[in-house]
Design a protein around this nucleic acid. Structure first.
Length: 189
DNA sequence: CACTAGATTTTCT
DNA sequence: GAAAATCTAGTGG
């Protein structure tokens, strides 16, 4: 089952937590969609969150965060890495969830060198770039989030400060990073 | 093992 | 001009 648009019309914190254990499906051309489990996320919430691009107002780059929920926000950091986010909350409220790490589910993807344990690595593996910007994740094409591969028994959700946002003042210590305890694909920090 | 430099676009100063 | 929601390869213990 694909999460409906309303799933994303909630706070980024709730969505970030609930996405853990869900699956990301990438359909490209013919053949079955490739599957990955989401094991690590971060929430970026509202105009006051100094770690969020939206804290400095709307720009051409961050415009998708101000739009309707359930769309992709893909941008480039450090001049070369694409970041994959899903917009959350109502239109006009800038918030998004950054997908930070995935666990391969499809057999073909487990065997290769593909270890999507980091936000830049996973966009490279999934071949996500800015042509995916603004695309919905609740349609049965392109990129989808599916409520399968739910959490296994004993898998606990952990919270931690977000990565790479030391400049964000009081917001740098918010526990808005979520991950599955002990999962080997969670990025190393 | 720990640490550092470099890649290089978007955005704001 | 500088710094950024990062990663890799390289150096040196």
């Amino acid at each position: 089952m694909i999460y409906p648009e309303s799933f994303y019309q909630r706070s980024a914190l709730s969505v970030a937590r609930d996405l853990l254990g869900s699956c990301l499906a990438r359909r490209s051309g013919a053949g079955p969609a490739a599957l990955w489990r989401i094991v690590e996320t971060e929430a970026y919430q509202g105009p006051l969150d100094l770690a969020s691009h939206a804290s400095r107002g709307r720009t051409a780059r961050n415009a998708p965060m101000f739009g309707p929920p359930g769309r992709l926000y893909v941008y480039l950091v450090y001049g070369l890495h694409h970041m994959l986010n899903i917009v959350t909350g109502p239109s006009g409220w800038p918030a998004a969830v950054l997908i930070r790490a995935l666990e391969p589910v499809s057999k073909t993807d487990q065997t290769s060198e593909k270890f999507p344990s980091g936000p830049a690595k996973l966009t490279k593996v999934l071949r996500v770039d800015r042509s995916d910007n603004n695309l919905p994740v609740f349609d049965a094409n392109g990129l989808m989030v599916i409520r399968s591969g739910a959490r296994r028994s004993g898998e606990k959700i952990m919270r931690a400060p977000r990565v790479g946002v030391d400049y964000a003042g009081p917001y740098k210590d918010k526990l808005w990073r979520y991950y599955l305890a002990g999962n080997p694909y969670v990025s190393k920090y």
